[in-house]
Simulated assay, not measured.
Amino acid sequence: MMTLVTGSIRKLYKDEDGLGTLEMILIIAILIAVAIIFKDQIKKIVEGLLKKADKKSNDFMDS
Protein backbone atom coordinates (compact mmCIF):
# COMPACT_ATOMS: atom_id res chain seq x y z
CA MET A 1 0.00 0.00 0.00
CA MET A 2 2.81 2.41 0.89
CA THR A 3 4.60 1.74 -2.39
CA LEU A 4 1.39 2.52 -4.27
CA VAL A 5 1.07 5.90 -2.51
CA THR A 6 4.76 6.68 -2.98
CA GLY A 7 4.55 5.74 -6.66
CA SER A 8 1.50 7.95 -7.14
CA ILE A 9 3.24 10.90 -5.49
CA ARG A 10 6.33 10.44 -7.66
CA LYS A 11 4.19 10.21 -10.79
CA LEU A 12 2.31 13.38 -9.82
CA TYR A 13 5.60 15.18 -9.09
CA LYS A 14 7.08 14.22 -12.47
CA ASP A 15 3.91 15.08 -14.43
CA GLU A 16 4.58 18.39 -16.20
CA ASP A 17 1.47 18.71 -18.38
CA GLY A 18 0.11 21.74 -16.51
CA LEU A 19 3.47 23.41 -16.14
CA GLY A 20 3.39 25.11 -19.56
CA THR A 21 -0.05 26.54 -18.87
CA LEU A 22 1.03 27.90 -15.51
CA GLU A 23 4.10 29.54 -17.04
CA MET A 24 1.99 31.18 -19.74
CA ILE A 25 -0.47 32.51 -17.17
CA LEU A 26 2.35 33.96 -15.07
CA ILE A 27 3.98 35.62 -18.11
CA ILE A 28 0.65 37.15 -19.17
CA ALA A 29 0.00 38.39 -15.62
CA ILE A 30 3.44 40.03 -15.48
CA LEU A 31 2.92 41.69 -18.88
CA ILE A 32 -0.45 43.06 -17.78
CA ALA A 33 1.06 44.38 -14.54
CA VAL A 34 3.89 46.10 -16.43
CA ALA A 35 1.41 47.61 -18.89
CA ILE A 36 -0.71 48.95 -16.04
CA ILE A 37 2.29 50.38 -14.20
CA PHE A 38 3.75 52.09 -17.28
CA LYS A 39 0.49 52.91 -19.10
CA ASP A 40 1.13 56.67 -19.20
CA GLN A 41 4.60 56.25 -20.67
CA ILE A 42 3.35 53.67 -23.18
CA LYS A 43 0.51 56.00 -24.19
CA LYS A 44 2.96 58.87 -24.82
CA ILE A 45 5.23 56.68 -26.92
CA VAL A 46 2.35 55.33 -29.04
CA GLU A 47 0.89 58.82 -29.55
CA GLY A 48 4.30 60.12 -30.64
CA LEU A 49 4.72 57.28 -33.11
CA LEU A 50 1.24 57.83 -34.54
CA LYS A 51 1.90 61.57 -34.95
CA LYS A 52 5.14 60.81 -36.80
CA ALA A 53 3.38 58.30 -39.04
CA ASP A 54 0.59 60.79 -39.78
CA LYS A 55 3.09 63.54 -40.62
CA LYS A 56 5.10 61.23 -42.89
CA SER A 57 2.00 60.00 -44.71
CA ASN A 58 0.77 63.59 -45.19
CA ASP A 59 4.21 64.61 -46.52
CA PHE A 60 4.13 61.66 -48.92
CA MET A 61 0.63 62.48 -50.17
CA ASP A 62 1.47 66.19 -50.65
CA SER A 63 4.51 65.47 -52.85
Rank of each mutant, 00 (worst) to 15 (best):
1 M>T: 00
1 M>C: 01
2 M>G: 02
2 M>N: 07
3 T>Y: 02
3 T>I: 10
3 T>R: 09
3 T>D: 15
5 V>T: 12
5 V>A: 10
5 V>M: 10
5 V>R: 10
6 T>F: 10
6 T>L: 12
7 G>V: 04
7 G>H: 04
8 S>C: 07
9 I>N: 04
10 R>S: 07
10 R>A: 08
12 L>V: 07
12 L>A: 15
13 Y>Q: 06
13 Y>T: 12
13 Y>D: 04
13 Y>A: 14
14 K>H: 11
14 K>V: 07
14 K>F: 08
14 K>A: 14
15 D>C: 06
15 D>M: 04
16 E>C: 04
16 E>D: 12
16 E>F: 07
17 D>Y: 02
17 D>T: 08
18 G>C: 02
18 G>V: 06
18 G>D: 06
21 T>D: 12
21 T>K: 12
21 T>Q: 12
21 T>F: 05
21 T>H: 05
22 L>H: 05
23 E>T: 11
23 E>M: 05
23 E>W: 00
24 M>H: 10
24 M>F: 07
24 M>D: 13
25 I>M: 09
26 L>E: 01
26 L>C: 02
26 L>H: 00
28 I>Q: 06
29 A>K: 06
29 A>V: 01
29 A>I: 05
31 L>E: 14
31 L>S: 15
32 I>N: 11
32 I>P: 04
33 A>S: 06
33 A>K: 01
34 V>A: 13
34 V>T: 09
35 A>G: 07
35 A>T: 11
36 I>M: 11
36 I>A: 13
38 F>H: 07
38 F>T: 05
39 K>G: 01
39 K>W: 15
39 K>M: 12
40 D>T: 12
40 D>S: 11
41 Q>V: 12
41 Q>D: 14
42 I>T: 13
42 I>R: 01
42 I>C: 07
43 K>T: 15
43 K>N: 14
44 K>L: 15
44 K>I: 08
44 K>D: 15
45 I>S: 03
46 V>L: 08
46 V>W: 03
46 V>D: 03
47 E>I: 08
47 E>S: 08
47 E>T: 08
47 E>N: 02
47 E>Q: 03
47 E>K: 11
48 G>E: 01
48 G>P: 00
49 L>N: 10
50 L>Q: 14
50 L>G: 02
51 K>Q: 10
51 K>S: 09
52 K>F: 11
52 K>R: 14
53 A>F: 09
53 A>E: 09
53 A>K: 14
53 A>H: 06
54 D>R: 03
55 K>P: 00
55 K>V: 08
55 K>N: 05
55 K>S: 08
55 K>G: 02
56 K>T: 02
57 S>R: 04
57 S>L: 13
58 N>F: 09
59 D>S: 08
59 D>C: 03
60 F>A: 13
60 F>T: 11
60 F>M: 09
62 D>G: 09
63 S>W: 01
63 S>G: 09
63 S>D: 14
